[in-house]
Each structure stands twice: as C-alpha cells, then as structure tokens.
Write a protein that binds this DNA or RNA. Structure first.
Length: 591
RNA sequence: GCGCCCGUAGCUCAACCGGAUAGAGCACCGGUUUUCUAAACCGGGGGUUGCAGGUUCGAGUCCUGCCGGGCGCGCCA
C-alpha cells in the first residue's frame, strides 16, 4: 500500500529507467497547478542536464511511452518540460477501494519487527510546578511517540525527570534552614525515617523558588546547597529519605498534569536512576583514554579537527566532584543500550533548542565511547521558544509564569463557554459537556502548538487559539463529528457506505486528497515534523466541509452514488480520526 | 569575537530533492440556513518573500556579503 502519487512514481520511474535515466527522476507529486493537472513529474528537466538533451524532447519520449497506460486519462507536456498527468476516475476509485479495505489506510510500516525507540521528553522536574514551558516538549514528544508507534516501532516514552542536580540540594538545604530539628538532618542517625513526608506537595512546590532566590542572594547558601547536592549524590541516608519524599509527591503531581492532556509515559526514570552507573562509565571512559583533567574537573574532550566552531568538552565531574546533566545523559545512553541491546534503534530527545550544543557534546561522547556508533541513532529535536503576543517569552498578565494546569483549565473553560453559546448542548448531561469541553480545549492547545514547525519560536495567543474558528483543532474535531453524525443518521435510515466508489465532479477533490496521506505520514516521520500532519488534516477537514456543503448525501436518489458518498464520508472520518490520533487529539461523539 | 536559528499579506503561519501564477487562517468587505451539526460554506481585496549580488532553463528555497531579531559558547539543568 502506498499513496497514489507513489504508485504513479513507480510507473514513470520504470519508463525513465528504460531510457537509461535514474528511476528516481520519475518521482510524481500532486500538482501545484490543479487548474492544469492532478499530478506532475519534473524529472525530464533534471534528466536533460544529465543527458545533455532538450528537456521537452525527453518529456515527449516519456509521454509517448505512457500513452497506453490505462491509469492515465491525460498526459501533457508544459512549460520547459513539466509532465502533467491526470488519472482516470476508475483508477482513482480502485485506489480508494484499496485503502478503504486496509486497516492502516494505505500507510506502510517502516520498522522491522521488534525495533524499539526511546523518546525522552516532557522536561519534568521534581519539586517544581509544571508551567507553560512544559507545554511544547509534552505535546511534541507525545506526538512524535505516536507517529513512531504507528510506523511500527515500539516507542517508549521516558519522562526522564530532573531529579538529581543542584535544585535537589537547594531544596534540602532550604528545608534544613527552616527545620533544623528534622530527623533527616541528624547525621548521627541512619534511619528508619517516617513513611509519610512532613510536608505536602504544594508546600514542596513553594520551597524551590524560595531556595533558588536565597542561593542567588547569598553565596554561603549556595555553597551549602552544593554540598547538600554532593552529599545526596554520595548517598547520605537522611537526604536520600527526604529526597524519596520529593519523588513520591512529585510523581503523583506530574502524572495528574500529564493525564490532563492525555499524555502517558512508559518509563518513569530520572537522572538519579543512573547514579550507580556513573563510576562504571567513568572507568570505561578512562580505559578508552577519553577523559582529561581540566581546571580541576574531569572532562571528555569532543572537539574534532574539522570543527569550524569551538567545541567545549563534556563535563563529567565538576571541580567539586559533583556530576552534571552531561554526566547523567551520557550514563543514561549507556544504561539504555545495556537494557535494550540491539533492539534499540533510536533514542529521540525532545527539548528546547537551546540545548543543541549540549546534545551534540553528549552524542559525540557516546559515539567516542562506542555506546552509539551505528545504532542506536541519537536524535535531538530542538523546539523553539514559546512567546506571548508581544513576541517575548510568554508571561501571565501580571508578569508571572503561567502554570500548566492553569493553562489547560483556561482552554477547557473557554470550550465550555462556547458549547453553551452554540446552543447544541441543551440535551447533553453535565458529564458529557465536561468531556466535550475537555477534548475541545486540549485539542485546541495541541493543534495550535503542533501546527508550527518544531524548531521555530512561536507566538502563543490564548485568545486566538480558543476562538475555535478557522484553522484550529476544534474545527477538525467538528468536521469529524459532523461525519459521525451523518453516518449515524444514514444507518438509522438503512443506508450504509458502499464498497465501490463513483467519482463525480463534486467528489473528485476530496477523493484525490484522500490518496495523499501516506506521503504526508512519511514526511512527518522522517523529519520529526508533526506540522505536516496538521496541514494535511486541516486540508482534509476543509475539503470534506466543502463536499458536505455541496452535496446533500442522505437525500441522494441514486442509491449507488449515495453508497459511494457515504463511503467517502467514512474514509474521511477514518483518516481524520487517525491523523488527529497521531497528534494526540481526541474526537468526541458530538459537540 | 565565534557558532546556530529566524526574517514571507495588517497579524499568526505554510510552501514536499530548487519548479509553473508564493498558499492558509485571523482581521476587513459582500453573500449563503423550510434538507445530513452555521464551531460551517461561497466570493472579494490584500505580496518587490529584510536588502544587494551570484549560480541555474528556473530561486522564498542553494552560495557570498550586509541589515534586523532570537539563542548558545566547560563547572545551572
């Protein structure tokens, strides 16, 4: 199964090959001049360069050979050597019947049996409230995971919590400052410690900002925090017990936040989980001659002769002996390779693009150490900053940082408000209204985010996003809902989607569009760019909406045409639900 | 200083290995509901793709220089 354009590419590629030209020149794509043709092949012009011939001449030769191709209804040469193609409605109908009968709607699997990919995303931290900055890694990472999953990989999301650095020491020493009599701080005692923490999650959450400010203002406090960090990492029992409390409370809170947007992780590890591997990795690096002492620190030089820019070494141990996130990231690769072995095809990181240099260092070090040479492939998806309508980093009206849960409930509230205004929800009970508002609000946020290319900064405008008009998540959900409703009505009057497609003028645009999905999926998969899927899903919803406005389906007198159109509706619905599913957006039954 | 990313309609964004007349949404103007959900549909205006060169049959896309914005550059994560 493939896209229609790919089928045509095979046919035309064979003709190019028969002329001793590269088969890839036969690449056919959807025409960007729909007024002239449905598909186009630009290979004749590239071939002209290679063969030093006139492009139109080559195009004519190719066209001549295609004359008897039954799938094609029109072959024209235009401009400098474009080959314009139309297909017959019969061929189109046959293709649609093919994908209708396919569970995967024509999208091929890309992975071999058993290949696994770890997707490291979310950017969650222990003891820190999730805020607007966690939106992008959560949404993009989840989407990437879903795409990889559909491609046939076993995609494992790892939340990889920030649970081991200086912030931990800062919180511990802040608690010590406030409650010096707590049992956790008595270095003569090694436990047992209380099962339940002496503080709540919301108290914990407030401590970190206070500790951070205190350390900035007072270098002695910072030193204490650094010492606490080191002691924690070295295993001081009281600190470890306290830290376990942070972990328990924080995980519950993170799960609540991620659950609220339908994001779930297979792996709940963090930086701390590789703590015990740090010395082993160090030993390994030493044996391989990869480390150097520098200014009291232990580093892994990763610069290369060919480097145009300065490439600082990866810091393994700081001069105070503490580890950095470079240490834990490298050890985590080591850990994953040990754990998954040959099955591990890739490790994909979704973080802020400002960490580009960091990941380049880590990846180079992993390559030098032999943890990731051919496989696993290490991929960093760096996304851009989320800005407010003023183009500066997003802030609340009073200049603060917006919390994640606050943001989500704002969108849901807006969706609820719209639902009431629309006057469609009169007979829905409260729980269904809640359910719809939730799906619509979250869908709006996700679609708005994923519509942008990952690496660019983008402007997050809540008002625009929750207008729910035009190119928004709710528009797509709405179209899917209309189809579902239509299909229910059809069933009620005894009509069902047929197996044969009849292509009239009113059907053709939608029918042609429905053949493109596999190419879009491949594009998004190979470049880790969900916005291509957004674009396609929107085009599909829009094409359906036009079709729907143009043809009254249930009153169609021609029974065969009615069945065909219902089949077109059903295929549109399946594609919409599938593509939205890749984006992590759910479609309600009605809205 | 060195390096990376970005600059496209009033605003927010697309444009698949370089392809034909650069597309959407919002906003603006006008129209559509006794039939399947109007969170909809149809039509209209709106562009020297930051600037200047270059490569090419062909450049928003590739190369060089400049202007403007963002970010990064060993002991924060």
């Amino acid at each position: 199964m493939t896209s229609l354009a790919e089928k045509l590419s095979d046919v035309i590629g064979a003709v190019f090959a028969a002329h001793d030209l590269p088969e890839t020149l036969g690449h056919v794509r959807v025409s960007d001049r729909p007024d002239l043709a449905q598909f186009q092949c630009n290979g004749a012009m590239a071939a002209a360069k290679l063969a030093k011939k006139n492009p139109r001449e080559i195009a004519n030769d190719i066209a001549e050979k295609l004359k008897d191709e039954p799938a094609l209804s029109k072959i024209e040469i235009a401009g400098p050597g474009f080959i314009n193609l139309n297909i017959t409605d019969e061929f189109l109908a046959m293709h649609l019947a093919g994908i209708t009968g396919d569970e995967r709607l024509g999208v091929a699997a890309f992975a071999s049996e058993g290949e696994e990919i770890v997707v490291d995303y979310g950017g969650a931290n222990v003891a820190k409230a999730m805020h607007v900055g966690h939106l992008r890694p959560t949404i993009i990472g989840d989407c990437v995971k879903r795409i990889l999953d559909f491609a046939g990989y076993k995609a494992l999301g790892d939340v990889h919590m920030g649970d081991w650095g200086l912030p931990m020491g800062q919180i511990i020493s802040e608690f010590e400052e406030l409650n010096p009599d707590w049992i956790y701080f008595d270095s003569d005692i090694e436990g047992p410690y209380p099962e339940t923490p002496p503080f709540s999650y919301s108290e914990l959450e407030k401590i970190y900002p206070e500790a951070s400010i205190a350390c900035k203002a007072d270098s002695a406090r910072l030193e204490k925090a650094k010492q606490a960090t080191k002691d924690l990492q070295d295993g001081r029992p009281g600190y470890r017990a306290l830290w376990q409390h942070f972990m328990g409370l924080s995980k519950d809170n993170l799960k609540r936040n991620f659950d609220s947007v339908g994001v779930h992780f297979e792996i709940w590890k963090g930086e701390a989980d590789v703590n015990s591997l740090i010395p082993a990795v160090e030993k390994d690096l030493r044996e391989k001659g990869l480390v150097a002492e520098s200014e009291g620190a232990l580093v892994v030089p990763v610069s290369e002769e060919s480097d145009k820019k300065e490439m600082p070494p990866l810091m393994y141990y700081k001069s105070d002996g503490a580890m950095t996130y470079g240490t834990t990231d490298l050890a985590t690769i080591y850990d994953r390779v040990q754990l998954y072995g040959e099955a591990l095809a890739k490790i994909v990181y979704v973080t802020d693009k400002r960490q580009n240099l960091h990941f380049e260092q880590v990846f180079r070090a992993a390559g030098k150490a032999g943890y990731a040479i051919e496989a696993p492939e290490l991929v960093h998806i760096g996304f851009g900053t989320l800005n407010g309508p003023d183009g500066k980093p997003f802030k609340t009206r009073d200049g603060g940082v917006m919390r994640f849960d606050q943001l989500v409930s704002m969108a849901i509230d807006k969706a609820m408000q719209r639902l009431m205004e629309a006057d469609l929800a009169g007979d829905f009970d409260d729980s269904e209204k809640q359910n719809i508002a939730h799906k619509v609000g979250v869908g709006a946020i996700k679609f708005a985010d994923l519509s942008n290319q990952p690496h660019v900064d983008y402007i997050f405008d809540m008002d625009r996003m929750v207008s729910f008009e035009g190119k928004t998540g709710p528009y797509l959900q709405y179209q899917a809902v209309r189809i579902k409703s239509l299909l229910r009505k059809a069933e009620g009057q005894g009509d069902a989607p047929g197996c044969d497609f009849i292509i009239k003028d009113e059907d053709r645009a939608l029918a042609l569009l429905l053949t493109e999905m596999p190419d879009v999926f491949e594009l998004a998969l190979q470049n880790y760019m969900p916005h291509h899927i957004c674009e396609y899903a929107y085009k599909l919803a829009s094409a359906f909406s036009s079709f729907y406005a143009n043809c009254h389906i249930l009153s169609e007198k021609d029974e065969a045409l009615k069945a065909s159109r219902l089949a077109l509706c059903d295929l549109s619905r399946r594609q919409l639900e599938l593509t939205l599913g890749w984006l992590g957006i759910e479609v309600p039954e009605r809205m």
